[in-house]
Design a protein around this nucleic acid. Structure first.
Lengths: 202, 202
DNA sequence: ACATTTGATTTCGTTTCGATACTAATATTG
DNA sequence: CAATATTAGTATCGAAACGAAATCAAATGT
């Protein structure tokens, strides 16, 4: 199954390198790397996922650290907190107007520029391989995977109507590209699944 | 050239996510994430690249921070420092015996397991796309790229003899998979090149 | 009803981080 | 050759991030 151990190591090394290199803040950026990561998450997470716990899980850190980062962003006026209606413990974070404004200066744009310079075939390969890899990693580590609704096992599309079996609701077209805590790889691989309320798909 | 902006964003997001998720330390690990990254770098860097400055560049941080991490690893007995002979300012770091021993517990092994679970075609695609992306990112940001000698523009192979035009020397087979500060993408893209001594290839 | 779990926050000590300043060795230049 | 600039490495400082642990409230399970 493994063609070359060195190849595997090189792929892993490059992934860490790229993730790290892209994360860095260019120059006189108002935000730190961790803060940018949080802003990006709350800008791209779907309704279910814009919580401190989900961000902590996404960012592979503790809820305490996540709280600190979120607090600093609220103080800067880039995030606002809303109490959830269904669960009074829970909290939902949203970008403020100025929060949306600074996203135009997201240092991740550098990486996106680089991706766009790639040959189309390579870009397609990445688009296919990375979600699969995220699912595999979650399975190996027994953690939650993150991915977009369009790649999710809970997602189905009939007659141009997008539907998520996880929340049992129709998805807005804008949600298709959103990150979700309840993401499950659709590779037929039965990726790890976080605690699901009651309406798990058969 | 860009088929879908959302696609680009999803690729970028997944890259940071995977890099971050893989970097984390599992459990009662003796080392922090930054320290593991350093150990990995000095374990896999070639002779030219096992210096504090090269690690700082690889890890997208400052030399001061790199010094601190290296110091902590020397105190733990995992790295040793050797003075370079050609340049008396320079320093070369090597793994000690116990340093090599703990690499068996590298948390990156999780990611490597996940990569090995991937379908062969996807793995090949990653092996091809990631070095190209690293080169593109370096070009966009005007920084130094890192890659292995086998992927490098300075590398050539005649009659089963590996040769590096950068250091003007034959490469040991073991060096082919090593990280190098003088890496230059071989995509015909003329990736950014760090200060090269005098023997630049025409 | 009671115990357990979950979501969020706070506190504490350590580590990382960027910025800055500094020394020493090497390159460059006039 | 001598003055200058650059480079490699280190140290220091304050701010941020981090993991671990404790706390509190709300929800869940038995």
């Amino acid at each position: 199954m493994i063609d070359n151990p060195a190849t595997t190591e090189e792929i892993a090394e490059l992934l860490v390198y790229l993730g790290r290199a892209a994360r860095g803040t260019d120059a006189g950026s108002d935000l730190t790397a961790a803060q940018w990561t949080a802003m990006r998450f709350f800008a791209r997470g779907n309704q279910l996922s814009r919580t401190p716990s989900a961000f902590a899980s996404f960012n592979a850190t503790t809820r305490g650290t996540a709280s600190q980062i979120i607090k600093s962003l609220m103080q800067k006026g880039y995030l606002v907190r809303h109490q959830a209606v269904d669960d009074r413990r829970s909290v939902r974070l949203d970008l403020t107007h100025s929060g949306q404004a600074i996203m135009h200066f997201d240092p991740l744009n550098n990486l996106m520029d680089a991706i766009n310079q790639l040959e189309g075939k390579l870009r397609t390969a990445l688009r296919q391989a990375l979600p699969a890899l995220a699912g595999e990693l979650a399975k190996v580590r027994g953690t939650v995977a993150f991915g977009t609704c369009g790649d999710c096992r809970h997602f189905s599309c009939c007659d141009a109507v997008s539907y998520c079996a996880c929340v049992d609701a129709e998805l807005a077209p804008a949600d298709l590209g959103c990150l979700c805590v309840n993401f499950a790889a659709s590779e037929g691989l039965k990726a790890a699944m976080p605690s699901l309320k009651s309406k798990e798909l058969s």
